[in-house]
């Protein structure tokens, strides 16, 4: 059986909120190392991958591999009943037809309990190759969201160029064109404001802004976002879910290539 207790319901609420417009139904794959989710959007352009390691929960118990087939719209309805600061416990049997969710207020004066019906989802699992990215950018997540939404007002695509001069986001549309350039920046007093750029070779790739703006719904999960690029491979946009390494929400986006 599965029993997983999260100290803050906020994490799961925000994860589901961030991905529910990209993915409708997906399996939460539970095993002794934690809970993972992988799903593509309907048009197979983007891939969402979530990992919540067992050490993100206390306690965490999962004796066998369990796939929880969940409709995210339904899960959203149930999670709406949880306050951000509630303690959230997920429970399921080994071959479950429902997922039990318990929300407890921090001072334990309210306990809510819900059962969510599960579904059988036959989902393809994709192997994501280990990639040494040519460019890695770590920046404030709200700043990345602002760049994407600002550029989407002009165009449906953005070209991201990484060079020794910095990271340049360029778009052009019917009303005109625009660009934003980021340079490495260290704020000694407020590390969250830092922009860190690691570059091993120049990169230039074009992506759909509609998807990038969608990924930015995860900005509430983490102050910083990590963006990884290599020529002719999908872009990786990654948000840390907890302070523990390995628990993250990742989005991969296939590029636009050629004319």
């Amino acid at each position: 059986m599965l029993e997983a207790r999260l100290d803050q319901a906020e994490i799961l609420k925000k994860v589901v909120d961030a991905i529910k417009d990209l993915v409708q139904d997906c399996n939460f794959d539970c095993n002794d190392s934690g809970i993972a989710l992988q799903a593509m959007d309907n048009s197979h352009v983007a891939l969402v991958s979530m990992n919540l390691q067992a050490d993100s929960f206390a306690p965490y118990r999962c004796d066998r591999n369990i796939a929880l087939g969940v409709n995210l719209t339904s899960l959203t309805k149930v999670l709406r009943a949880a306050q951000n600061t509630d303690i959230l416990t997920l429970r399921a049997l080994d071959a479950p037809d429902s997922l039990n969710l318990v929300f407890e207020s921090q001072d334990k004066d309210r306990i809510s309990e819900y059962d969510l019906k599960l579904m059988d989802i036959d989902q393809e699992h994709l192997g994501i190759p280990e990639t040494e990215y040519a460019a890695t950018i770590k920046m404030p997540s709200v700043e990345f969201r602002r760049i994407c939404t600002d550029l989407m007002a002009l165009s449906e695509s953005v070209t991201i160029e990484a060079s020794k001069d910095g990271i340049k986001f360029t778009c052009s549309g019917d009303i005109g064109n625009g660009s934003v350039t980021l340079r490495q920046h260290t704020n000694v007093e407020n590390e969250k404001e830092n922009i860190e750029i690691e570059l091993s070779e120049p990169v230039a790739l074009t992506f759909s802004l509609k998807y990038l703006v969608n990924f930015c719904k995860a900005a509430g999960l983490s102050n910083t976002v990590t963006i990884c690029l290599s020529n002719e491979v999908p872009l990786l946009v990654s948000y840390a879910l907890t302070s523990k390494a390995g628990s993250n929400l990742r989005f991969y986006l296939a590029p636009k290539i050629g004319d």
């Binding site: 352009v45 393809e124 192997g127 695509s157 070209t159 491979v233 991969y252 986006l253």
Partner: peptide, 14 residues
């Protein structure tokens, strides 16, 4: 602005 690629062209089915 280029042709949208599919993620399936990059990641193989496990």
């Amino acid at each position: 602005t280029g042709k949208q690629q599919s993620i399936l062209g990059f990641f193989s089915k496990a």
